[in-house]
Amino acid sequence: MSPQAADIRAFSIALGDDALVLGQRLAEWVSNAPSLEEELALANVALDHIGRARMFYGHAAEIAADGSDEDSIAFGRDTRTYTNLLINELPRGDFAFTIVRQFLVDAFNVPFLTTLAASSEPGLAAIGEKAVKESAYHLRRSRDWMLRLGDGTAESHDRAQRAAEELWGYTRELFEPFGAEARLTAARVITDRAALEDAWRREVGATFVEATLQVPQSTWSIRGGRDGVHTEHLGYLLAEMQFMQRAYPGQRW
């Protein structure tokens, strides 16, 4: 594997981890959602993310050609080798927290996947092109819920505002490329995610205003996901998700 192939593999796995961990968090709403309709909608979004993780992991396995596959990548690694951004692993919280997180991530994913679809690496470009259509729909949904919660009842407004304050410091990491990604950016295989920040702030700010919410003013931020330094929550998520493969390695159905 050339150094650049190794970078593409690491980048694919990081994006796969983002999608899988968020998909798992969304799937936790199944049997807990506020209504049957909302449950199906959340499950659909969860499945889109899990499908996306499969594509990224499959691509990574193909590049490595080392006998790994999407399952071994998803179920055979512990927290320190998971490289998802921290915002994706935070517990689902209440419905407002799930929606605000989803909106912040969707508002990033749409422009990010648009640039990924223009990557000079055909595998990444193909995944970007498929995923961006899904994310456009996710954003429409999460944005709609932002307005309903923010401009809804006093309680829904407060919960959405509280969620935004809790999440804000985790958004910084969305715009920080890690080592492999920075090298791919320098080699013009992909474009710089840091360049997406201004447009994201405008989009998020406009939605917050429309939803009668305040854009958080806090300046703290936290990072570490791409280095495998996670919150205490990821271990529990992986323990539950990986249980079957850990107990019965290689089991299929």
Binding site: E38, N44, D144
Partner: peptide, 20 residues
């Protein structure tokens, strides 16, 4: 049929519930 707060949400839910 499905439950929704308004027609816009009903349309979104219809997409998720019936056209997957």
């Amino acid at each position: 049929s499905l439950h929704a707060e308004d027609s816009a949400q009903a349309l979104e839910y219809a997409r998720d519930v019936y056209t997957r």
